[in-house]
């Protein structure tokens, strides 16, 4: 019977696939794409070399594009360490119990977002968002960005007791901070919310025209980016590996390496530092 033959071969193939030995893992990390993606690979490859020296094992950097893809790679053990944003870190640690936030940037302890506006709105820097923003058009950054979406939305809801869709005539998701700035500067959207570091970097680069777009409000401080490691790395790379890794991250002092993030230094962090982010995400309905 030819059919039985075929099914037998399929069975063999499936068994063969299932029995393929898992190869020895190379310690791999990723970073969510955020600021200055174009030189991401180059810069993070240097970070991989640094970690490899410090830990005396092979370390590889896996470039990842989208936020959910970064979280998925972490959960699927394709990467064991990740430089996550506040929200993506919370999502990852919820999906993979046992994983730990181990270090954050000096600046991430008190991160903030800027609300920016096109000059035609006539808005200027103020202590509070003016009621006049109702009915304007507004752009967030990426949907899962802490500084470009989660916290700005949280403060909008807190002040106006409305969802962004109720508050504004149109709400867009530009994809990242640089696009938000370009769209607000061109007046395509009247308002936007961006990561303050991204704004300041572009201000230095000269790609922002202060006559066209300006900061109208700064959010209160909140915790953001952090290094998160899988809970099972000690089992694979030996007792105490997590501590060793944490020490290596905290000891990173070379400005060329720190520029990849860009941060001035790393300090230690724990899951508890991000409880506020988790609660905010729940309040907004991004996490059940």
């Amino acid at each position: 019977m030819p059919l039985t033959n075929i099914s037998r071969w399929i069975l063999y193939a499936v068994l063969l696939l299932a029995c393929l030995p898992a190869q020895a893992r190379i310690f791999t990390f990723t970073a969510i794409p955020d600021v200055d993606e174009t030189r991401l690979i180059e810069r993070f490859t240097q970070v991989a070399e640094y970690l490899s020296q410090q830990l005396a094992i092979e370390v590889r950097y896996l470039p990842v594009k989208s936020y959910p893809a970064a979280v998925t790679a972490f959960r699927n053990n394709q990467v064991q360490l990740a430089w996550f944003g506040g929200l993506t870190g919370v999502q990852a640690r919820r999906l993979l119990p046992g994983s730990k936030a181990i270090a954050q940037g000096e600046e991430d302890q008190y991160f903030k977002s800027y609300f920016i506006a096109h000059s035609s709105t006539g808005l200027t820097l103020a202590e509070q968002l003016p009621a006049g923003i109702k009915g304007m058009t507004f752009s967030f950054g990426s949907k899962s960005s802490t500084s470009g979406r989660l916290m700005p939305e949280f403060y909008l809801r807190q002040q106006f007791q409305q969802t962004p869709e109720q508050l504004f005539s149109r709400v867009g998701f530009s994809g990242n901070h640089s696009r938000t700035i370009a769209l607000v500067q061109s007046g395509a959207y009247q308002l936007g919310a961006v990561n303050y570091k991204a704004w300041e970097q572009q201000l230095r680069d000269g790609s922002i025209n202060p006559n066209r777009v300006s900061v109208i409000w700064t959010t209160p401080a909140y915790p953001d980016y952090q290094w998160t490691v899988r809970g099972d790395v000690d089992a694979e790379w030996g007792q105490g590996f997590t501590e060793q890794l944490t020490r290596a991250l905290l000891a990173m002092k070379d400005p060329a390496l720190l520029d990849a993030f860009p941060r001035s230094a790393f300090v230690s962090a724990s899951n508890a530092d991000y409880t506020a982010i988790l609660e905010t995400a729940k309040a907004i309905g991004l996490i059940d």
Binding site: P33, D36, E37, T38, L40, P63, V64, K65, S66, A69, G175, N176, S178, R179, A182, S207
Partner: peptide, 17 residues
């Protein structure tokens, strides 16, 4: 979405202006 094709760099370039 991150596969290493031309779109990887195209999107990076576009997103960064």
């Amino acid at each position: 979405i991150g596969l290493p094709t031309l779109g990887f760099y195209l999107e990076s370039g576009f997103m960064q202006g």
